[in-house]
């Protein structure tokens, strides 16, 4: 068979030794840049000389001179067997024995090799895919709970005063974990302190809900505790409103207007050593009453935009850990 030729008759150029000299020349030239100009000059001359010879060689046929090329393929003397019938698989030195009388022909070798290739490929694929998929997906669902956050001494929270409180949910993560809670000290109920603590994330689709009313920025207090910078800004809202799609809430977090489907989420809290600690958030379908007297319908934390009670909450039967 003739090697395939391009339309313009290109073929493999004749073998040539000039490139070796060319390479040596380049090496001497580079050495010369360190050792001195004389050596560099010598290298340049060698490079140019062998380069010229090489180019002349390689372009021989373009310049119309016939080059004698040793043929790459030679005629093969026909062997006697070349014309003979193909030999059956059970003959000759490497022949497989024919199945004996009564022996069922078993698994053919080709089927075994095919299955083995698939199987080994599958195992290798699995070994790679399983950890990669696991690493992609699992970290988002494991060890998600974060600890309690100290937001100040109970005495910092004047009675019946809203404080816009911002803090780092997880100081290790830095500013990206800064959260805002609207905190109001309700005084006491049956001798126990009572706080209303609303998460400022809108339960429509998560925008930052703002207080409807004056915010006294100049009276803000700052405090740093365990690498957690906390700010508390007094505000006097008559309710809360969302800038994104106009959701409105009253001061208990009940939905008043707009697209939100439930009341604002709240923080669990505890008091230890006179300090107010915020815990996990939970969802609320409805709040009856006010302040310390409020009766809260509490649910497991749900994503924004979803009902926590009624038939449409059945659409979310399992929640991620």
């Amino acid at each position: 068979m003739e090697p395939k030729r391009g339309e313009h008759g290109s073929h493999v150029a004749a073998p040539s030794l000039w490139p070796v000299g060319f390479a040596i020349g380049v090496a001497i030239l580079l050495l010369g840049t360190i050792l001195g100009w004389v050596i560099a000059g010598l290298g340049a001359v060698i490079t140019a000389l062998f380069g010229f010879l090489w180019i002349r060689d390689a372009t021989n046929d373009l310049r119309g001179e016939e080059v004698a090329i040793e043929p790459e393929r030679r005629e093969v003397a026909p062997r006697a067997s070349a014309t003979a019938e193909p030999r059956p698989a059970n003959e000759g030195e490497a022949g497989m024995p024919l199945p004996e009388e009564g022996e069922v022909e078993r698994y053919p070798r080709s089927a075994f090799l095919g299955a083995a290739t698939l199987g080994v490929g599958g195992v290798i694929g699995g070994l790679v895919t399983v950890p990669v998929l696991g690493f992609t997906i699992l970290p988002a669902f494991t060890s998600q709970g974060s600890g309690q956050v100290d937001v100040g001494a109970v005495d910092d929270f004047e009675k019946e005063q809203w404080l816009i409180t911002t803090f780092l949910q997880d100081p290790d993560q830095g500013e990206v974990s800064r959260r805002t809670a609207y905190i109001r000290n309700n005084g006491e109920l049956d001798g126990q302190p009572s706080f209303t603590i609303l998460s400022h994330r809108c339960v429509h689709l998560g925008c930052p809900v703002q207080p409807n009313g004056p915010v006294r920025d100049d009276e803000a207090t700052r405090e740093t505790r365990a690498e957690n910078e906390i700010t508390r800004i007094p505000a006097d809202p008559s309710g809360f409103g969302c800038p994104c799609h106009g959701g409105q809430y009253d001061t208990e977090g009940n939905r008043k207007a707009g697209p939100p489907v439930r009341a604002m989420d709240r923080y669990e809290f505890s008091i230890r050593g006179g300090r107010l600690l915020l815990g996990q958030t939970y969802s609320v379908s409805e709040v009856r009453g006010q302040g310390a007297e409020a009766r809260i319908k509490r649910h497991r934390l749900a994503k924004p935009g979803v009902h926590v009670d009624g038939p449409s909450s059945w659409l979310y039967p399992i929640s991620p850990p």
């Binding site: 689709l205 998560g206 925008c207 994503k303 924004p304 659409l315 979310y316 991620p320």
Partner: peptide
Amino acid sequence: VVGININGTAPILGPFIVQFLQSG
């Protein structure tokens, strides 16, 4: 935030999609 939470309202898998996208 809004776009991710819209995904969260998809039935059944929504909350998982949110957590996957946010990585938490």
